[in-house]
């Protein structure tokens, strides 16, 4: 009986009318009269609010990252943020000559996509790194534990076994969700 119930539930879930996959041709015209010169900051704020409300209302353990813009080498970042699903922590370090001499600055944020790179542009070395554990995006000279000594390359998930576990669980949940909603 229980098994039957489970099967029924599964069928119900799969059969849930998803959003049609047909090419959306009729266009929603609402909001269209709004001029396009919206202020980007406002829009950012709106979206940031949305960020913490997860689709489906399921509560998930969110990745937390440092979020500071262009701090000099000796300054510590004390701003953090919960990223939205699928984001990674990012650190960008710029090292090069400025009008006030040789300067190293770093910025940190939650990135939608992160491609690690080191490139020297106009005498400034720009290094971008990506990592996926809580508050992992600290510049190498500030990290207490030895993280990624070179500060280069994608630091893999270096979290404790606990975070790995949650990540796995999350993946599983996401997979289940996709199974339910992905059917046309």
């Amino acid at each position: 009986m229980k098994a039957l119930g489970a099967v029924l539930l599964a069928l119900l879930l799969c059969g849930r009318p998803g959003r049609g996959q047909t090419q959306q041709e009729e266009e929603e015209e609402d909001e269209d009269h709004r001029p396009d010169d919206y202020d980007e900051e406002d829009e950012d704020e709106v979206e940031e609010e949305e960020t913490n409300r997860l689709p489906g209302g399921r509560s998930r353990v969110l990745l937390r990252c440092y979020t500071c813009q262009s701090l000099p080498r000796d300054e510590r970042c004390n701003l953090t943020q919960n990223c939205s699903h699928g984001q990674t922590c990012t650190t960008l370090i710029a090292h090069g000559n400025t009008e006030s001499g040789l300067l190293t600055t770093h910025s940190t944020w939650c990135a939608d996509s992160c491609q690690p790179i080191t490139k020297t542009v106009e005498g400034t070395q720009v290094t971008m790194t990506c990592c996926q554990s809580s508050l992992c995006n600290v510049p190498p000279w500030q990290s207490s534990q030895v993280q990624d000594p070179t500060g280069k390359g994608a630091g893999g998930p270096r979290g404790s076994s606990e975070t790995v576990g949650t990540a796995l669980l999350l993946n599983l949940l996401a997979g289940l969700g996709a199974m339910g909603a992905g059917r046309p």
Partner: peptide, 29 residues
Amino acid sequence: CSREKVSHLQKGKAPAVFVKCHDKSLNKK
């Protein structure tokens, strides 16, 4: 972002340099 909090832009003078300090995808979600 400017690397020195603010950069000064003067006519006919040296260019001001800015380094990426944040990015965001618009078609996500």
